[in-house]
Amino acid sequence: MIEVINLSKSFQNNKAVNNINFEIGKNEIIGLLGPNGCGKTTTIAMILGLLKPTKGKILINKKNIENHRIELLHKMNFISPYIELPKKLTVKQNLIVYAKLYNVKKIDERIEYLSSTLRLDKIINSLTGELSSGQKNRVSLAKSLINNPSVLLLDEPTASLDPETGNFIRSFLEDYIKQKNISILLASHNMEEVKRLCTSVMMMKNGNIIDQGAPSELIKKHGRKNLEEVFLKLARTEHEF
């Protein structure tokens, strides 16, 4: 469970995140939407403990990330298209390295499970750098699930993927959340993906959460046909903060 309380982050005079509050319960996927530079990545980085908040706190399973960073990171993980795994290591070697780093007990069993569910069997001994972007994405997803996390942060997990691979990842995440006690924060620019996966959506702009609710509720509330139109309306409207 993630609780974000009065969270702010400033870089000199620039408020990247401004006093935001939200909660993600067990078995919940919450979407984080907003234009580039609105504060999504900064928020995720603070939840991961990579960035120190200027104000406010983040509780993971009721514990403050600032005080229990290492302990909490054991049960968290992250995937982003902007972060890669070492290219000169095979898929299996990468998974072994991260399994060790996360102190996973039954490493072979875990890798076998992820390999079969994420269709990595045929590429498990290939060099990671030689894989297609769709294959790399599935490997990164396997790495993010290696420690069986109870908190998963997904930053554009299907960016630049072909429709088939994108659909495979979405279906996988849908099934995964049904089986596991997991809280997921999904930052994405793909509105269909957000609508399909998320129970609730937060719209961010200039570091603020300007609206939130279930995708269908937001569509209805703003009188638009789909989530993309809601996004465009909110992105183009001037807000007073």
Partner: peptide, 13 residues
């Protein structure tokens, strides 16, 4: 290798 962030979000002191 752009793996830096992955290491710093791993639970290592």
């Amino acid at each position: 290798s752009r793996n830096f962030t992955n290491l710093f979000i791993a639970p290592m002191k």
